[in-house]
Design a protein around this nucleic acid. Structure first.
Lengths: 250, 250
DNA sequence: GCACCCCATTCTGGATCCAGAATTCACGAA
DNA sequence: TTCGTGAATTCTGGATCCAGAATGGGGTGC
């Protein structure tokens, strides 16, 4: 909690929140580069760094307390993840997702996750179901920032891991990352009706009812898709408002 | 170009071929980093750098004629592309694909490309078909190294571009990249029977016959999948031979 | 003779320094 | 008053330098 935490506005660029994240990640890292990567990823997913935000290497380096080099490494990785965007000789900004792109992400996820779920359910064991119940409950407890995304990632990782399709999971994970920041926004404004999705999904899975499980997953994804699109279009509507556009900051 | 082009064996690490590639990419680049990225990508796709090959930054930097820093940037990007693999504090190696992973890639491509093709054919114009004929012919002319992959990438880019699904295309492109190096190997050993795939696909597309086009695409992907798997399993069989393995840690 | 341990070498990862390009601010002219 | 031009500042991208870890070789002990 730094002193100038009073106004986590656009102007401060999420500096205070970023320093907090830096503190939480400070310990036990093999290399500084991956630490910075994790910090920045969390910052974007948690909303501390908003889409369109300019990411000046010098500033980030100072806030985290490292040199510019690992920051550059992390930014390059994040670019590959689709979370930031490089403008040649003009620096990096947090990538924003258009409604159309978000829609695409969910369409593709539908294809891939249904496939993964079917494959998973052919290889499911009782122990895995038990672990899923645990992770599902743990995920429902996590409500803040990047932990929310991480917990759910763990859940789905365990679920789809039964399919033993690492490449498929990698693709799904990439797609989930792209919309991670917006799902968080959806959770904040959304009602709790979707919170039972995990339970429904787990029960369908546990009872080995493939079609029902696929149905729950499909409904869930379609529902989130709608909510995220609504959020994105609302955000696009009041451009110039609290949502910082790609326009000139400074 | 270089004098010691005599023995492009595994021992030389593709140094001569890499220097050639460096020469071809030398001109007109905005930044050194992306140049190095292109060079290394081409080197891996063309087979100048073989899976399992150690990628020492100093050596690569000297061969290309730049400092180690842009090499590092390029390697990080290539890691995100799934073409190289970092071993913490032990450097990078060209990533090798297991038969199972290759099979996965083709399974996912089948899902995504069929979807992309369907979407494309709903939005197809005559001009695009004409351009596809051109690109198809151009692709069939390219037979060497990374150009082979690039030309086909251009073709499929034009094809799926009609669908106007950038994220979907990005995913497909990623998957194609992962198997690019092996497809090349398949082409080298494979017969020419598949060379008519482009024509068949274009004709089906031109006649607006969705199901036939999907059928051609599906057959093509399944066929290539089989061939690549055969190649990979043969390669895995003579491990310890010319193909350097990933070596046990420690 | 073989195996284990220690030391030297090498290479990665990080920090600091430098050059080129872009943005911004200021000044002047229309 | 406003627009255009030019210079200064700032920031990215690249090069060089340094520290720490891993590997390989050599020596020694069993």
């Amino acid at each position: 909690m730094s002193a100038q935490n009073a106004a986590p506005s656009v102007g401060d660029g999420g500096a205070a929140a970023l320093q907090q994240l830096a503190g939480r990640h400070a310990t036990g890292y093999r290399s500084v580069g991956v630490m910075v990567y994790d910090i920045l990823k969390d910052a974007i997913l948690s909303g501390a760094l908003l889409p369109g935000q300019k990411l000046r290497q010098e500033t980030l380096a100072e806030l985290i307390g490292v040199s510019r080099l690992p920051v550059r490494s992390a930014l390059i990785q994040l670019e590959a993840d689709g979370l930031v965007e490089f403008h040649e000789r003009r620096g990096a900004v947090v990538k924003s997702l258009s409604p159309a792109q978000a829609a695409e992400v969910y369409d593709i996820r539908l294809l891939l996750e249904v496939e993964a779920l079917r494959l998973t359910m052919a290889e499911l064991t009782d122990e895995r179901v038990a672990r899923l119940r645990e992770l599902g409950k743990a995920a429902d407890r996590q409500q803040e920032g990047a932990d929310f995304v991480d917990a759910r990632t763990e859940f789905y990782s365990e679920l789809y891991d039964a399919a033993n399709r690492p490449v498929l999971w990698e693709m799904i994970e990439q797609l989930r990352l792209k919309v991670g920041r917006y799902v968080l926004g959806w959770r904040l404004v959304g009602d709790a009706e979707h919170s039972h999705t995990h339970e429904q999904l787990i029960e369908a899975v546990a009872s080995r009812d493939v079609e029902r499980a696929v149905g729950v997953l499909r409904d869930h994804l379609v529902g989130v898709r709608e909510a995220v699109l609504e959020l994105l279009e609302a955000e696009a509507a009041d451009a110039g408002g609290p949502a910082p556009r790609v326009r000139s900051p400074r």
